[in-house]
Design a protein around this nucleic acid. Structure first.
Length: 578
DNA sequence: GCCGTTTTCGGCCCGACTGTTTTCAGTCG
């Protein structure tokens, strides 16, 4: 029986294949819309099918419900089988390359006989692509770079995608006989934005027995030859998991060792070596005898260090900071009082102002600041001066309602204003001046040369009405590298104007990333962590942003979302006074 | 293909910009 994810993927494949075949774009869009709905379902599609409820889902009509029914009942659908025979499977990969849409993919296929990513990469690297109609040298170079990014990142999952796989694995392994304890380790435990192999640490007194049981897990497709203390598993979903096994009495040292990072552990080992000791997953070896560590605290204590949280273990200097008592006390999820960047049905969000506000109240927020798009990019349905004025009326009414009911909750009116390619903003200053909070974000022209891209952000920062720069680089994990910025210049400009830089918690962004956050904090720049939610359910996703900020060493006081409403309202005084 | 205080047809998520061409494909949210 196919699961929800497999069915959703099949519907996406249909849309992709139809697009290459030049089908009606609305028909293609209908499949994509249906796939969005299906992917968001928490109930099993098999159950909905059995109840005859599939067509109740928005975007799913008789046609698509019929295909899903066939997939569930027979494991395949004749329509899909026939469609996919007309499109080589590798062509769907080509369609995922930025710069290449359905028309180009079809042309590469029919005219050049290019049917997969490897052939496209070869053509681009040999300079043959620029000869194809519609392609030039610049496009060829960008396609080559994009393919290289795709190939190097295919084995890395975004954190948001890795977490549920890890949860399933931890639950399954935790249920095996003889397993005393199992936790995530590796880059996932450190909160990295993307994760390669999933690493877990497992404590057992019966290493042989547990090893045999791991092979039998339903998630496991195969396993590597025995490497001793680490057991490599290939999962059915294509991911790999490295399970480190340890006797319980060595838990602390094993957890430090397998959490990494490699640089961090190497530096710990150097510190141990200064004492004439050595350190590995088993513990410290002191004069040929093993000193075990039950927990992580005792590992660090043995080296006269305070415990360093996993998010900071990247080898950037955290051990020296710990020795000098300069380790930051980093922000906790519970420190966040407010989300300052989210969208509503006024622009391209899925929830109304009220629905979003209620979702925020449910998270315990004291206030929130909406940030719908400015009118600029057509598809976002952004707001101009007049619609901002109308939105303000709705916000005032909601606040009056909250006030009357005795709730202390308040809504502020912000706006996510587009930074135009030259650094000017999409709304005039007098309109910006009336907003409670102005977030300026780059959305277009993200491939400018470094100098232009940097000057653009600096110009936006220097606008006295701009309070926050949203997702500063514009990167999309595994997809788009983001603007080529001289971040030192951007940070220096933000420091001199008091402009706040965003840590966008959108799971596909996580922008700024940890190194930029550290640099910003070192320059005295404040941060804000926001979800950029386009749906009430997305507001809960603030946690990945908090994790990213922790990796950058941000303390609660560095992040304005921990401030009181009055302090936030004061941010705009800077623009009021100029 | 889906949907309907527009109900069985006709509209759906735009439009300025870039690179490559000379009329178009792809990007960006």
């Amino acid at each position: 029986m196919l699961n929800n994810q497999e069915i959703t993927q099949t519907i996406v494949d249909i849309a992709d294949a139809m697009e290459v075949l030049g089908e009606n774009r609305f028909r293609v869009a209908a499949y994509r819309r249906a796939a969005d709905t299906l992917g968001a379902q928490t109930t099993s599609l098999a159950t909905l099918h059995a109840q005859g409820d599939l067509t109740a889902l928005p975007g799913v009509g008789e046609g698509i419900a019929g295909i899903i029914g066939e997939l569930l009942d027979q494991g395949h659908a004749p329509f899909v089988d026939e469609l996919l025979t007309r499109v080589p499977p590798g062509l769907l990969d080509i369609l995922r390359v930025p710069e290449i849409g359905p028309k180009s993919a079809a042309r590469l296929f029919h005219d050049e006989g290019i049917t997969d990513l490897a052939a496209l990469q070869a053509a681009a690297s040999e300079g043959r692509l620029r000869a194809v109609k519609g392609f030039g040298a610049k496009t060829e170079a960008r396609i080559l770079a994009a393919i290289n990014l795709m190939l190097t990142s295919t084995n890395r999952l975004r954190l948001i995608d890795a977490l549920p796989v890890m949860d399933t694995l931890v639950a399954a392994i935790g249920g095996l006989a003889g397993v005393r304890r199992v936790v995530p380790a590796g880059s996932l435990r450190r909160g990295a934005s993307t994760v390669g192999d999933l690493n877990l640490l497992l404590a057992t007194d019966d290493i042989t027995g547990v090893r045999a049981a791991l092979r039998q897990l339903p998630q496991v497709a195969g396993c590597d030859p025995d490497l001793g203390d680490v057991f490599g598993l290939q999962l059915h979903n294509g991911m790999r998991a490295g399970v480190a096994l340890t006797p319980p009495e060595q838990w602390g040292s094993a957890l430090v060792y397998w959490t990494g990072s490699r640089e961090h552990v190497t530096q710990l080992q150097a510190l141990a070596a200064e004492r004439g000791w050595s350190f590995d997953a088993r513990g410290f070896t002191v004069a040929n005898s093993l000193r075990r560590c039950l927990d992580e605290d005792s590992v660090y204590a043995a080296l006269d260090l305070p415990t360093i949280i996993p998010e900071l273990r990247e080898g950037w200097g955290e051990i020296a900071a710990a020795q000098q008592g300069r380790l930051p006390t980093v922000i906790e999820p519970g420190d966040i009082h407010a989300d300052l960047h989210w969208h509503t049905t006024w622009s391209d969000g899925k929830g109304s102002l009220r629905e979003m506000a209620e979702a925020g109240r449910a998270l315990g927020y004291a206030f929130m600041s909406v940030a719908d798009h400015s009118a600029y990019l057509g598809v976002t349905g952004g707001l101009d001066a007049e619609r901002l004025r109308q939105q303000r009326l709705e916000i005032d009414a909601l606040n009056a309602e909250y006030g009357a009911s005795g709730a202390s909750f308040r809504l502020l009116q912000g706006c996510e204003v587009d930074i135009l390619p030259d650094g000017a903003l999409a709304l005039p200053d007098d309109v910006l001046a009336r907003l409670d909070l102005v977030i300026a974000s780059p959305h277009v022209a993200l491939r400018q040369p470094r100098e232009a891209a940097t000057a653009r952000l600096v110009r936006a920062i220097n606008n006295p009405h701009v309070d926050i720069i949203g997702h500063p680089t514009g990167r999309l994990l595994n997809t788009r590298p983001g603007a080529d910025l001289d971040m030192a210049q951007v940070i220096a400009a933000a420091a001199s104007t008091g402009t706040i830089l965003e840590v966008n918690a959108g799971p596909e962004r996580l922008d700024l990333d940890a190194p930029h956050i550290r640099a910003a904090l070192a320059a005295g720049v404040r941060l804000t962590i926001n979800t950029d939610a386009h749906d009430p359910r997305h507001l809960a996703g603030i946690s990945l942003g908090v994790t990213t900020a922790r990796r950058g060493g941000a303390a609660a006081a560095d992040v304005i979302n921990t401030w009181e409403l009055a302090q936030i309202a004061g941010i705009n005084d800077r623009s009021a006074s100029t």
